[in-house]
């Protein structure tokens, strides 16, 4: 870790200016990811801008019936906010499936979007990595790829975005609010994270210096039929091998609206609108779910040690949709997994 200076920002404009005034500055939310990366020398900012005093930690209803999450609201406060529990239980489940209580108490919603991949090679300076050092090569290809992508990969990078929360946000079609040197703008969630292509060093579409100020959830929360299913190497405190956020609206047994997003399989939370469309108007049966699952994984490509994730993802999609349709906890292998307080 190198030495760095630190300022505690008290206003968004000031934070943005401070960032522009330094060459290697970084915003810091809860620090649960950034500090680790600094200790491993993966990130070497020379200046940190603290965001916790920006006053962006509130969670409020919006006039259009949605909910606004301040970028500095902690993951824990978000998950347990009464409006989230009541109207967006999918988000509650996804957040609680991630990390540990201690981490969720520190981690902020903005930081969660911005967390970097858990690719082993990205974290280890001894191994080449295009994301860390563009042009140096991708060590993961042909290596140990348990946490790596099966969809939307490129020959330059096969990393995944590790967040659980973001999988739910993708399914819920949240909007990201940002503020930057050129003023404010909003980014649709599906446009926020990106695929690696030939620029794996770019995780998302934020422009240099831009700060996330909040997240807007639309009114529709799918509180009646939803499921977040996370499969991992131990019951808690491990990143997803595969996770699925499923949300349905049903008329009797007929699906009238469907959202399906996957975590642990791509460089961004993976949504397949074609697969969602296939569900509409269909009966909520295993057959329907299997067809949708097959569609999602159509273009999937295993990397060797993660080949199993293709089959696992299919089964997880079928199960998550079934759970969402039936809201039957007995089927939920997360019954153990969500025992975190």
């Amino acid at each position: 870790m190198n030495s760095f200076t630190f300022t505690q920002a008290t206003a968004v404009a000031g934070a943005v200016q401070d960032k522009a005034a330094h060459d290697d500055a970084a915003y810091i939310g809860g620090g649960t990811n950034l500090i680790d990366l600094m200790k491993e020398n993966v990130a070497r900012p020379t200046h940190l801008i603290g965001l916790k005093k920006l006053g962006l930690d509130t969670i409020e209803n919006t006039p259009d019936g949605g909910l606004r999450l301040g970028a500095l609201a902690t993951n824990a406060d978000t998950a347990w906010h009464p409006e989230v529990e009541k109207r967006y239980p999918l988000l509650n489940q996804a957040i609680l499936a991630g990390a540990s209580p201690q981490l969720r108490n520190m981690a902020t919603d903005g930081g969660n979007l911005m967390q970097r991949t858990r690719c082993y090679y990205f974290y280890d300076l001894a191994t080449p990595c295009n994301k860390r050092e563009p042009g140096s090569g991708c060590s993961a290809i042909g290596g140990y790829t348990r946490v790596h992508a099966i969809l939307g990969t490129s020959e330059h990078c096969i990393a995944t975005h590790p967040s659980d929360m973001c999988v739910a946000l993708a399914a819920l079609e949240a909007t990201v609010r940002v503020s930057g040197p050129n003023g404010e703008r909003t980014i649709a969630f599906e446009d926020f994270h990106r695929l690696p292509g030939d620029q794996p060093e770019r995780d998302n579409t934020l422009e240099p210096g831009e700060l996330i100020t909040g997240l807007d959830l639309p009114e529709k929360g799918f509180a009646k039929n939803f499921s977040y299913l996370k499969l991992r190497d131990r019951t808690s405190y491990a990143f997803a091998l595969v996770s699925v956020a499923a949300a349905l609206e049903l008329d009797g047994n007929t699906i009238t609206e469907a959202r399906l997003a996957l975590g642990g399989v791509a460089h961004k939370p993976w949504r397949d609108k074609a697969a969602e469309a296939m569900l509409i108007g269909q009966p909520a049966t295993a057959d329907t779910f299997r067809r949708a699952a097959a569609k999602v994984l159509e273009g999937a490509k295993g990397q060797g040690t993660n080949n199993f994730k293709i089959e696992l993802a299919k089964r997880a999609i079928v199960r998550a949709l079934k759970q969402a349709a039936e809201m039957n906890q007995v089927l939920d292998t997360n019954a153990f997994q969500n025992s975190n307080p």
Binding site: Y120, Y121, D124, A126, T127, S139, G143, Y144
Partner: peptide, 11 residues
């Protein structure tokens, strides 16, 4: 978990 290409435990 050893990546034998690097001779290194990766996890």
């Amino acid at each position: 978990v050893m990546d034998h290409r690097f001779g290194r435990y990766m996890n």
